[in-house]
Amino acid sequence: MKSLRLLCAGFLLLVSVLASSVLADDAVVLTIDGRIAGDTAVDFTLADLQALGVERIETTTPWHDGAMVFEGVSLSRLMEHVGAQGDKLTAIALNDFYTEIPLSDAEAYGVLLAYRANGSILTVRDKGPLFVIYPFDRYPDLRNELYYSRSIWQLRRLTVK
């Protein structure tokens, strides 16, 4: 019996772990505020983002072995969608990591807010749910500390300034 109880407990644990790592469909993954249309913060679920169209970047990064195929929403498309007025973004991650991204990068390099890598949805453990991706292979000039630092993962909030 004891072993059965243990087994049951193990099953429950597995379910809860799965529940904690896989977000619910209506969970907010991104909040955008600052100088945007309406001046009120806008929340996005994964479905909202997917509704804005899928873009794709294939590139290597300093954090992965081998080339990766990222899919997500185009940052410039997203900015257009929220009616961004500023010239830079401050980006904050789940662990409060902070970085700044010039808005011009979005247009110039086709920066992506990736939610899928190599076909799989990004979890927190995979640096999801949103990972800012620059096309490092297409523009070798981007392969430096500055752009690496802008490539924030586990992105949670964007503020247009």
Binding site: P62, W63, D65, R125, D126, K127, W153
Partner: peptide
């Protein structure tokens, strides 16, 4: 408790990051 679990995942993700790419 939720936050503790999130940061556990973040830590796991970090360990993955340290195992691959340049840090790897």
């Amino acid at each position: 408790a939720q936050a503790a679990r999130l940061f556990h995942n973040i830590l796991l993700s970090r360990i993955d990051t340290w195992s691959a790419g340049a840090f790897g």
